[in-house]
Amino acid sequence: MNTSPIDPNTCPVCGASNRCTLANPRTVGQACWCFTAAIDPAALEALPEEARGQACLCPQCAGVDAASRNAS
């Protein structure tokens, strides 16, 4: 069992910054990138249970970066 605390500023999958404006006290009043992103449902389903609702995925792990590259 992993007992390390979940950092709300990092992606629970890869450990990179998740760029979550809600987790950052300096930007908490701004809309987050994920509010308008189409996040891959498979990415959410793959999250470990203990990370759900604790930290956001980064755009790459959420499948947003790949989707925007494919649309170009």
Score class of each variant (00 low, 15 high):
residue 60 Q to C: 08
residue 27 T to I: 04
residue 66 A to P: 04
residue 61 C to S: 04
residue 13 V to Y: 03
residue 69 R to V: 04
residue 54 Q to L: 00
residue 40 D to M: 02
residue 24 N to M: 08
residue 52 R to W: 01
residue 2 N to Q: 10
residue 29 G to D: 12
residue 58 C to E: 06
residue 59 P to E: 12
residue 28 V to A: 07
residue 32 C to I: 05
residue 44 L to A: 04
residue 24 N to Q: 07
residue 10 T to W: 02
residue 2 N to A: 11
residue 38 A to Y: 15
residue 57 L to Y: 08
residue 3 T to S: 09
residue 38 A to Q: 15
residue 48 P to H: 12
residue 43 A to E: 05
residue 41 P to A: 08
residue 14 C to W: 01
residue 19 R to L: 10
residue 57 L to T: 08
residue 22 L to H: 09
residue 30 Q to L: 14
residue 7 D to N: 13
residue 16 A to F: 05
residue 13 V to H: 02
residue 34 C to V: 09
residue 26 R to W: 14
residue 30 Q to W: 14
residue 13 V to T: 06
residue 11 C to R: 09
residue 32 C to R: 02
residue 28 V to H: 13
residue 66 A to I: 03
residue 7 D to K: 01
residue 36 T to F: 11
residue 50 E to I: 09
residue 7 D to A: 06
residue 1 M to K: 10
residue 54 Q to D: 00
residue 63 G to S: 01
residue 56 C to R: 09
residue 68 S to N: 14
residue 53 G to E: 00
residue 3 T to W: 14
residue 29 G to I: 04
residue 23 A to P: 01
residue 54 Q to K: 01
residue 22 L to Q: 12
residue 4 S to A: 12
residue 6 I to G: 01
residue 57 L to Q: 06
residue 22 L to V: 06
residue 31 A to E: 10
residue 30 Q to D: 12
residue 60 Q to L: 10
residue 24 N to L: 03
residue 8 P to K: 04
residue 59 P to H: 03
residue 39 I to G: 04
residue 4 S to T: 13
residue 18 N to Q: 04
residue 60 Q to R: 14
residue 46 A to K: 06
residue 15 G to T: 03
residue 55 A to V: 00
residue 69 R to K: 06
residue 59 P to C: 08
residue 44 L to V: 12
residue 63 G to D: 03
residue 27 T to M: 09
residue 33 W to Q: 10
residue 47 L to Q: 03
residue 6 I to M: 02
residue 13 V to I: 06
residue 60 Q to M: 09
residue 22 L to W: 07
residue 35 F to M: 15
residue 23 A to M: 02
residue 44 L to T: 10
residue 55 A to T: 01
residue 45 E to V: 07
residue 36 T to D: 13
residue 26 R to T: 13
residue 27 T to H: 12
residue 6 I to W: 00
residue 68 S to C: 07
residue 39 I to V: 15
residue 15 G to L: 03
residue 43 A to D: 06
residue 33 W to P: 13
residue 15 G to F: 10
residue 35 F to L: 13
residue 52 R to T: 00
residue 33 W to G: 11
residue 29 G to K: 06
residue 6 I to N: 00
residue 35 F to Y: 15
residue 27 T to S: 13
residue 46 A to Y: 09
residue 32 C to Y: 12
residue 44 L to H: 10
residue 58 C to Y: 08
residue 9 N to I: 02
residue 62 A to W: 05
residue 60 Q to F: 10
residue 30 Q to S: 10
residue 40 D to Y: 05
residue 69 R to D: 05
residue 59 P to S: 07
residue 32 C to T: 12
residue 4 S to P: 13
residue 70 N to L: 12
residue 71 A to C: 01
residue 40 D to V: 01
residue 23 A to G: 11
residue 42 A to Q: 09
residue 62 A to H: 08
residue 71 A to H: 07
residue 40 D to E: 07
residue 60 Q to S: 11
residue 52 R to I: 01
residue 29 G to C: 11
residue 46 A to G: 09
residue 38 A to H: 15
residue 13 V to P: 00
residue 47 L to E: 02
residue 68 S to W: 12
residue 44 L to W: 11
residue 46 A to F: 04
residue 61 C to P: 01
residue 56 C to E: 09
residue 24 N to S: 08
residue 15 G to A: 01
residue 21 T to S: 13
residue 47 L to A: 04
residue 37 A to N: 05
residue 38 A to V: 15
residue 43 A to Q: 04
residue 38 A to C: 11
residue 63 G to T: 02
residue 12 P to T: 12
residue 41 P to F: 07
residue 64 V to D: 11
